[in-house]
Computed example of a mutant assay.
Amino acid sequence: MVAVLGYVQVGFGQDAGTGAQANQKKPPVQEKNVDSKGSQTAPGQIATPSDFVIGASDVLNVNVWKEPEISQSVVVRPDGKISLPLIGELLVSGLTPVQAQTLLANKLQSILTNPQVTVTVTEIRSRMVSITGEVVKPGAYPLLVPTTILQLITNAGGLGQFANKKGIFVLRTVDGKQQRIPFNYSRVIKGEKPEQNILLYPGDTVVVP
């Protein structure tokens, strides 16, 4: 009888321990979407290359598990810094999102126990190019990968019906001075002027008259 009771007590203790472990809360697993190129993005996050670096005016979503006071959307200031409660200012310009969340987690070590931090880019404003005039979808486009004039025209849906294919140009500011770089669409697509199909820089504007 004693042996039976002892067996029941041990078994009960094991069940209780297992139940305690099962009820222990863990940080939620964030859902991710996979695009056609295999890049994973969380809801609200835009797809960025793994080597994308944060710049001024970019919008970041900072999420610290179970810390709503710190978790918020922030805009990177012109000096490359963001401000967060309990932490103060952090220089994030020039870092990848992964590097930024590591920096943030290290800063929180003295305040929180094992902080779970996620930093995602929700809006890119630091690396933008624009296209205006006779294209299907004029506007500003994020410069996530090296992009030529032809590629931007394609991204903008192609030329409009009345586009002046020989009069396209790029406006670029260098050392405070604006340059006008010609682009003859008709000759470039024929392979006659490949050197005109230059890579675009952040801040460039392609004008299609």
Rank of each mutant, 00 (worst) to 15 (best):
A3Q: 10
G6L: 09
Y7N: 02
Y7C: 10
F12T: 14
F12Y: 15
F12N: 12
F12R: 12
G13L: 11
Q14T: 13
D15Y: 14
D15C: 10
A20N: 09
Q21S: 12
A22E: 14
Q24Y: 14
K26F: 14
P28K: 06
D35K: 09
D35A: 08
S36V: 15
S39R: 15
Q40S: 13
A42C: 03
A42N: 04
P43E: 08
S50F: 09
F52M: 06
F52E: 01
I54M: 00
I54S: 02
S57F: 14
S57W: 10
D58V: 07
D58F: 04
D58N: 09
V59S: 08
N63E: 13
P68C: 05
S71W: 04
Q72R: 13
V74S: 05
V75H: 05
V76M: 07
I82K: 02
S83D: 11
L84H: 04
L86C: 01
L90V: 13
L91K: 14
V92N: 01
S93E: 15
G94R: 02
L95R: 03
T96I: 09
P97E: 02
P97V: 01
V98K: 13
Q99D: 10
A100E: 02
A100D: 03
T102H: 09
T102L: 11
T102A: 10
N106Y: 04
N106A: 12
Q109A: 13
Q109L: 10
T113E: 13
T113K: 14
Q116F: 11
V117R: 00
V119I: 15
T120Y: 00
T120V: 11
T122C: 03
I124V: 15
R127V: 07
M128T: 08
M128P: 03
V129M: 03
S130F: 11
I131K: 01
I131P: 01
V135W: 03
K137S: 10
P142M: 05
L143M: 10
L143E: 06
L143V: 12
L144G: 12
L144Q: 11
V145N: 14
V145P: 03
T147E: 06
I149H: 01
L150S: 12
Q151L: 07
N155L: 15
N155A: 15
A156V: 02
G158L: 04
L159D: 09
L159T: 11
G160L: 10
F162E: 11
N164C: 00
N164M: 05
N164F: 03
K165F: 01
K166T: 13
F169T: 07
V170T: 03
R172P: 04
K177R: 13
K177G: 00
R180C: 01
R180V: 15
P182K: 04
P182V: 08
N184V: 04
Y185N: 00
R187M: 12
R187T: 07
R187H: 08
R187P: 00
V188Q: 03
V188Y: 00
I189G: 08
I189R: 08
G191A: 07
P194N: 05
P194V: 05
Q196D: 07
Y201D: 10
Y201L: 14
V207H: 02
V207L: 06
V208K: 00
V208M: 01
P209F: 01
